[in-house]
Design a protein around this nucleic acid. Structure first.
Lengths: 183, 183
DNA sequence: AATCATTAGTCATTGATTGAGTATTCCTAA
DNA sequence: TTAGGAATACTCAATCAATGACTAATGATT
């Protein structure tokens, strides 16, 4: 049971598929292969998915057992370890700390948070709001003195500020939608 | 002179450094290593930069000549080929076609476009505006029917719509700033 | 005099990603 | 009915990207 804890991040989302019951790789791939739900934001080749699952196993977040079938190829069933379960719980509630992680990492967190129920989703939304507001203030501080001296740098800051403001507005929308978003 | 034309994209930005005069890798790295200008948006390790430059050479966009110095280590000078020059001209004017390329690819284009002068920058801005408006319409079409049936998918669309609207607003800001942004 | 940053680039290794392959079985339509 | 294709389930080799460490000389600093 090796616990190396390399810098995993996006791949933790895969733990979400296993949070209720064990699953085999092929089934996870099916969930991701049509452009709906998490498949709308995360496109993974089959071989890439299996590679990530192996990595999660190597690092002790999941264990596998081979399940032989009468007629079909045998399945490798993936199951959360206790570490895996804890890691998922933490991951799904922790806001992302960089703007570039909003598109994929945050959307994956929100996907599972929303499936876990409104409390979890609301918690994530609120935490992410705080993180965004921090970025915003910091960027506004940094932008101020650049306006005259470094127009390009100032515009880059303005771009980021705009993206984060849009994110904050969207988080409000999420909150309003929440009751409807529960499956 | 191999011309393979693999799917290069971000690395074309490096051609921008050579558009006025030949340069060696170390100097390009210096331009990127402080967090201003292009270095604000593109963080490249030294070895990674050299790897990209070699790739551009392999594919025929640049040629190299070694320049020996009396006391310092010899420099490998990179110079645009005619293909490289044309490729840069096309690259710098062509809008990006995916939202996730706004952060890096578009900012790199805009960096050099703006250095080339207001006409080039205005052209890029206008082209990017058109691309963004297309995305926006398409996303709005797609989002419509999802509202009731697939709340998560609808929210993902809303997120993207928000990011693109923010981009469009920012493009207006760029246009207003342009006269000041020229060095 | 010793130490540290600068110059300029290489290299080996690890990690990520891809496309293709495998082998069985089920379904469908001529 | 039988040929062809899609589905099931995973593996593998090969390429591509990325990282950290290294070299080796000079100049600057304390």
């Amino acid at each position: 049971m090796p616990r190396v804890n390399l810098p995993l991040s996006t791949e933790f989302a895969l733990l979400g598929f296993l949070r209720r019951q064990p699953m085999h790789g092929y089934e996870i791939h099916q969930h991701l292969s049509d452009a709906t739900g998490l498949g709308l934001v995360w496109h993974l080749k089959q071989s890439q998915l299996y590679a990530l699952l192996s990595k999660l196993e190597r690092e002790g977040y999941v264990t596998t057992t081979v399940e032989y079938q009468n007629t079909r190829p045998p399945r490798k069933m993936f199951e959360l370890t206790e570490t895996g379960r804890q890691t998922f719980q933490e991951w799904v509630q922790r806001p992302v700390q960089q703007g570039r992680k909003l598109r994929l990492d945050f959307m994956a967190k929100f996907y599972f948070a929303q499936m876990e129920g409104p409390e979890v989703a609301l918690q994530l939304i609120e935490q992410q709001r705080l993180a965004c507001r921090d970025w915003l203030h910091q960027l506004e501080q940094e932008a101020e003195p650049l306006r005259q001296s470094r127009p390009y740098d100032w515009l880059v800051h303005k771009f980021r500020i705009g993206q984060i403001e849009a994110m904050l507005a969207w988080l409000d929308t999420c909150q309003e939608m929440l009751p409807a978003a529960i499956h």
